[in-house]
Simulated scan of single mutants.
Amino acid sequence: MDFVLVSQRLALAGAEVAGIVRADPMVPDSISEPHLYVGEWTINYDQTYGGLVDAEVIVRVLTSRADDMAGQERLKDFMRRTGPTSVKARFEADPTLGGACQDLHVRQFRGHRQYQVGEKRYYGGEWPVRVIGIDSEEG
């Protein structure tokens, strides 16, 4: 499984969520809220003799903290299970990410809480995404 490609495809899918201004396949240096990005990976190798990889990647969305309520309300829209603002629904619309993995599943949402990027603080939350694929030399 090509982890760079999976991250890129998750960011592309995230960019299609209604209301997301910017989506990045890696942790950004600066934020344009609401901003979705692909964060840390936890990888379990060799789940079968054929090289099955069972991984979890954290996808975060950060919203403005300029107004106590507006950023948190916006985040609640992204938390929905279904609909055009649902991060979960958008990712699960193509569970192979165009062939980048065998399957994925969004199991939960964690948040809200405050995140700091540089000197600025944001409201945000995270979606652990389970990604399953075959590890091979071809990527």
Results as ranks from 00 to 15, higher is better:
Ile132Val: 15
Gly125His: 03
Gln108Lys: 14
Thr82Asp: 15
Ala13Ile: 04
Leu12Asn: 11
Asp29Tyr: 05
Val21His: 07
Tyr123Leu: 09
Ile134Met: 12
Val38Thr: 06
Ser86His: 03
Val59Trp: 03
Arg81Asn: 11
Phe3Tyr: 14
Gln102Phe: 01
Val61Ser: 06
Arg80Pro: 08
Asp68Tyr: 03
Glu40Ile: 06
Met26Asp: 14
Arg22Asp: 12
Asp68Ile: 01
Val21Cys: 08
Asp67Thr: 03
Gln114Thr: 09
Val106Ser: 11
Pro28Arg: 02
Val4His: 08
Ala93Thr: 14
Val57Cys: 03
Val38Ser: 05
Val57Trp: 05
Val38Asp: 10
Pro95Phe: 09
Asp2Leu: 07
Leu62Met: 13
Asp46Lys: 04
Leu104Ser: 10
Lys120Ile: 13
Asp2Met: 00
Gln114Trp: 02
Gln114Leu: 09
Val117Tyr: 04
Asp103Arg: 02
Asp67Arg: 05
Gly118Trp: 07
Arg121Asn: 14
Ala13Pro: 04
Ala55Ile: 07
Val27Thr: 14
Ile20Phe: 03
Tyr45Thr: 12
Val17Thr: 09
Asp67Gln: 06
Gly111Ala: 07
Gly71Asn: 04
Glu40His: 07
Pro34Tyr: 06
Arg90His: 12
Phe78His: 05
Ile43Phe: 02
Gly124Lys: 01
Asp46His: 07
Ser86Glu: 01
Trp127Glu: 08
